[in-house]
């Protein structure tokens, strides 16, 4: 072995390059191989296929009177469906011009202004805001109030005050008829 080592410097540059190449290739292949071996351990924790199977939910909204709201479950998450009054729509539109933390026009958040459909999860740390049932606090802007750390949402589900960074998210949905919405 000592011979091999001591003869190395006398070898032509070509051989040196070849040794470097072999060394780098070995390091490269083991690095890629190690990463490839780690990935299954990490991805094992991601949602499994049955959880991912995107459920869609159809809702009959004919029974939701003006000014009332219902909560339905989609992908395990609560979805708020609120039948807005003319007054609520008016303030939501008027507030497009107000100073908003997450600026978005009311028109971009609804398909039919009478119905506001948003995911009922506070964008702060995931509590379900209050304001769905009559008698629950709706916050200073008449939408929802998250009791956990005091976030206020307006009648368009936009964040107006408190620690939450974003508006209540709008899920993908479509009106199948005047009375039914498909969420997802």
């Amino acid at each position: 072995m000592a011979d091999t080592a001591s003869t190395a410097p006398e070898m032509s540059g070509d051989d040196g390059n070849r040794r470097d190449f072999l060394l780098n290739a070995t390091i490269g292949v083991s690095a890629v191989g190690t990463l490839a071996a780690i990935w299954p351990f990490i991805d094992f924790l991601s949602p499994s296929a049955d959880v991912l199977a995107l459920a869609t939910t159809e809702v009959d909204i004919s029974g939701v009177d003006l000014g009332m709201a219902i909560t339905i479950q989609w992908q395990g998450k609560p979805v708020f469906v609120r039948h807005r009054t003319a007054e609520e729509i008016e303030t939501a539109v008027a507030d497009d011009a107000a100073e908003l933390r997450d600026p978005q026009a009311d028109a971009d958040r609804v398909q039919n202004p009478d119905w506001l459909i948003v995911i009922g999860i506070c964008t702060h740390l995931g509590c379900i805001p209050q304001g769905q049932k009559p008698g629950e606090p709706r916050g200073e802007w008449g939408g929802w109030f998250c009791p956990c750390h005091g976030s206020h949402y307006d009648t368009s589900g936009r964040i107006r005050k408190g620690p939450a960074p974003l508006n209540l998210a709008v899920p993908p949905y479509e009106f199948l008829s005047d009375d039914t919405v498909k969420i997802g």
Binding site: G76, K77, C127
Partner: peptide
């Protein structure tokens, strides 16, 4: 569990994906 794990979603860019990875679902489940 919901409030504490949702803290991860504060991480810029990958926060939401990270939270779903931690949960193994779309909510604590």
């Amino acid at each position: 569990a919901t409030v504490i794990t949702s803290m991860l979603s504060a991480v810029p860019v990958v926060g939401d994906d990270l939270t779903i990875w931690l949960w193994g679902g779309f909510t604590v489940d």
